Simulated scan of single mutants.
Amino acid sequence: MNPSPAAIAAELGLPVSRITDALLLKIAEDELFLHHLEMCRTDERLMSILLRETEATAASPQGQSTPELLRRASLAVVRWASSGFRKVSQAAYDRRLAACLACEHLVAPTENPVYRFTGARSVCNLCGCETRRKARLPAEACPIGRWGEER
């Protein structure tokens, strides 16, 4: 189970307002990042550098390069194949998609060729994934836990 933003803030001695979606995404994607934050919690200067770096790199994941989007999509396909090409139940899909559709991070796709090729209609601005496809795959998860599921 993932720690809550309040728990992370308390552990790091930060106000909860500093625990942004971008920071949570960075923690989820990089298993050492939370450790680095914990190691720097007593050094305000280093903590500031780590937080600033996270904010700068999280401006718009949709701006990821085509090779990065293809890499992420390929990994998702491998995970899907490993599951036997299963899909979540219709009820789970509906619940996941409803969470995405209500999320402030849902955006229209950019002109990236990957989005044009796949016919993406809605994209998560945090992870860059096409929401309608990702929500069907059992091995995938919302990058900030809005689906309410554990991987």
Rank of each mutant, 00 (worst) to 15 (best):
T66D: 02
L101P: 01
R136N: 02
L101F: 04
G128D: 04
G63Q: 12
D94Q: 13
S74N: 07
R116N: 12
R95I: 01
A108M: 09
S122R: 08
A73V: 04
G84L: 11
R86Q: 14
A139L: 01
S65L: 07
A102S: 14
L101N: 15
C124G: 10
R96L: 06
R96K: 15
R86F: 08
N125P: 04
G128P: 03
S65C: 13
A91V: 04
T118R: 04
V77T: 14
V77F: 08
F85R: 14
R136G: 08
V78K: 06
S74Q: 13
C124P: 00
L70W: 11
L126E: 03
P138T: 11
P67I: 14
R71N: 14
A135V: 02
H105G: 04
F117H: 15
S65V: 08
A120E: 05
F117M: 13
V114A: 12
T66P: 02
R133V: 09
R116K: 13
N125C: 10
A99V: 06
A135P: 01
T118V: 07
P109D: 08
A139E: 06
P138I: 02
K87F: 15
Q64H: 14
R116Y: 12
L75K: 13
A81S: 14
Y93E: 09
R79M: 05
A81F: 07
P67F: 05
E140Q: 04
S83H: 03
P138E: 00
A92D: 09
A76G: 12
S83P: 02
W80E: 14
N112I: 08
P109Q: 11
R96M: 07
S122G: 14
F85G: 04
R121Y: 04
F117W: 13
R116V: 07
A108F: 02
A73S: 13
K87L: 12
S83M: 05
L126V: 07
N125A: 12
E104K: 15
A73T: 08
L70S: 06
P113K: 03
T66H: 15
V88S: 00
C127Y: 02
W80H: 09
N125I: 00
T110G: 13
S82K: 03
